[in-house]
Each structure stands twice: as structure tokens, then as C-alpha cells.
Amino acid sequence: MSEAAGGGATSKKFLYVNRKAPYGTIYALESLEVVLIGAAFEQDVSLAFIDDGVFQLSKGQSTDAIGVKNFSPTYRALGDYEVTKLYVEKESLDERGLTLDDLMDVTYEDEDDDYEEKPSIRVVSRSELADIMAGQDVILSF
């Protein structure tokens, strides 16, 4: 097993797989909370958004009228938690009539590159995501 980039010898590669739309069920919020808690353990964490999970990153979410918390701004804090890889599946976007432009801007500041802001969202194909999954130590599904 290869050592994870940026982590120590004990660092494992964690992938959180998000497949549900926000608000209709609690999965999206639960996943985000587990990611934030898990980030304290300084593992090599990535997030995947497939199927309806891609809707979690839609821009312009406004929940005032349904009386639940809008947690979409919290995805933009993930960079502070050193979670900088958000893989979004292209096929899932296509099936839903979405493009990268429909998603929020999520960036992180690269400490090794003079705090340069870089995009966290990476659109990948289904087969690329299969490879990413194959390279993980732990996969958590929501």
C-alpha cells in the first residue's frame, strides 16, 4: 500500500461517496458532518459526488422558505480542513442537465504555493472515478 501524499506513514486514503440530493433526506448533511469530524484525524480525505449527490453542490441554494438550515456554504470551508479533492462525476451531471457552471465555486488555498486559491471540484468520468475508488483504503457511502 502506498503512503498517502501529504500524510504520514499511518495516513490512510478515505473516500466519502455522496449519492443523495440535499434536504429531502438527511444523508448529505450527515456526510458533511462526518467529513468535518473525520478531518481532525489528518487522513488523506476525498469526496465523490455521483448520482443525485451532484445536486449537493448546486449554486444558489436558499432554504429560508422550507425552514431548514442551508448547509451548502459549508462545502466552501472544506479547504480549511485540508479536504481539497471533490470529485464530481461527469455522467451524473449530464443525466441531470447540469454542467460545472451550475455548481458552487469551491476552492482551497495551497499553502505550498503561496496560498494560491485553487479549485477543489474536479469533474471526472465514471471510469476515472472507478479508478479513484480502487485506490482507496476506506470508502464511506452516504
Binding site: 434536504y23 448546486s58 444558489g60 441554494q61 436558499s62 432554504t63 422558505a65 422550507i66 431548514v68 442551508n70
Partner: peptide, 14 residues
């Protein structure tokens, strides 16, 4: 239902 559209960031033009 409009409030559920707004929550999910879906504008009328979509």
C-alpha cells in the same frame, strides 16, 4: 413547489 426549488438552487429558467 417553489420553496423546495429555491432550497435546491433551481431557478425558474431551468
Amino acid at each position: 413547489l417553489g420553496p423546495d426549488l429555491a432550497a435546491r438552487g433551481l431557478a425558474a429558467d431551468r
